[in-house]
């Protein structure tokens, strides 16, 4: 699959993070993270497991509170918002979870309709049904509309998870390990879907991953997280052309493992 370049509007910052710190007990996960994401840009946050990548995006949607630093999303400082303001902000952010987090007790249709029913009371049943079918069609899974999440494959679950966030027409998409646990072919499909979502819905995205193929195919900019800080940021080539041994070992491990697997 060819890498697509998205045109970012460098005059409009949608996410701005300054000197962000977060600890869990004695474990310092984030130690002064700085990041800016511009409108229409896909930023990939790369790093080993347990380096705080998911913590970073959970702070952006207010699921976790930062210890120190400033996180601003769409011009609003997240930790200073009250419940209602946070709710309004969350309507503009799509969060795709690592394990999809589909509601087990509901069908795919009910999963997708869930945020609409609760946040847009003025919508009729027909309008909700039309919106549900449209986003499901956009991710190519209209035929699964009346199935239960347990009946779906891993890749289908990821797609439905993404569709559930798209139904709210978000301005920002946050993907937490979108290709984790998927076979290489399904991973490529998900990478394509991320790019299609960006083009169709004009979103800005942060993609958390340790999969270099995903990073290369979806990221306009790569930010390498190491020891609680961004070691470097740039295009895929800029980051991996660097001489830093830690970056090279991450690169070699990924592709050597991929070669061995194939």
């Amino acid at each position: 699959m060819k890498r697509r370049i998205h045109i970012a509007d460098k005059t409009q910052k949608v996410i701005s993070i300054e000197n962000l710190e977060k600890s869990f007990g004695t474990l310092h996960v984030l130690r002064g993270v700085d990041l800016e994401v511009f409108k229409g840009e896909n930023v990939v946050v790369l790093g080993r497991s347990g380096t705080g990548k998911s913590v970073l995006i959970k702070i952006m949607v207010g699921l976790l509170k930062p210890d120190k630093g400033m996180v601003s999303v769409l011009g609003q400082q997240v930790d200073a918002l009250n419940n209602n303001q946070l709710r309004q902000l969350r309507l503009k952010i799509g969060f795709s979870f690592q394990n999809s987090a589909l509601y087990d007790s509901m069908t795919v249709r009910e999963n997708l309709a869930f945020p609409l029913v609760r946040n847009f009371k003025q919508l009729t049943r027909k309008e909700i049904s039309t919106a549900t079918e449209k986003v499901l069609d956009d991710v190519g899974l209209l035929h699964t509309i009346d199935q239960m999440p347990a009946e779906l494959s891993g890749g289908q679950r990821k797609r439905v998870g993404i569709a559930r966030t798209l139904i709210l027409q978000p301005e920002i998409m946050l993907y937490d390990e979108p290709t984790a646990g998927l076979d290489p072919i399904t991973s490529l499909d998900i990478n394509s879907l991320i790019n299609e979502v960006q083009e169709q819905y004009h979103t800005s995205s942060i993609i958390i991953t340790h999969d270099l193929t995903c990073a290369r195919q979806t990221g306009d900019r790569i930010a390498m997280l190491l020891d609680g800080k961004f070691l470097t940021q740039g295009t895929f080539e800029e980051v991996f052309d660097a001489d830093d041994e830690r970056i090279q070992s991450f690169y070699n491990y990924n592709f050597i493992t991929a070669d061995e697997t194939s």
Binding site: L63, P115, T165
Partner: peptide, 16 residues
């Protein structure tokens, strides 16, 4: 089970 599979977090981020 909803908590450990992040379904409760998913509800929260979908403004519910």
């Amino acid at each position: 089970s909803m908590k450990v599979t992040e379904q409760i977090d998913a509800m929260e981020v979908s403004a519910t």
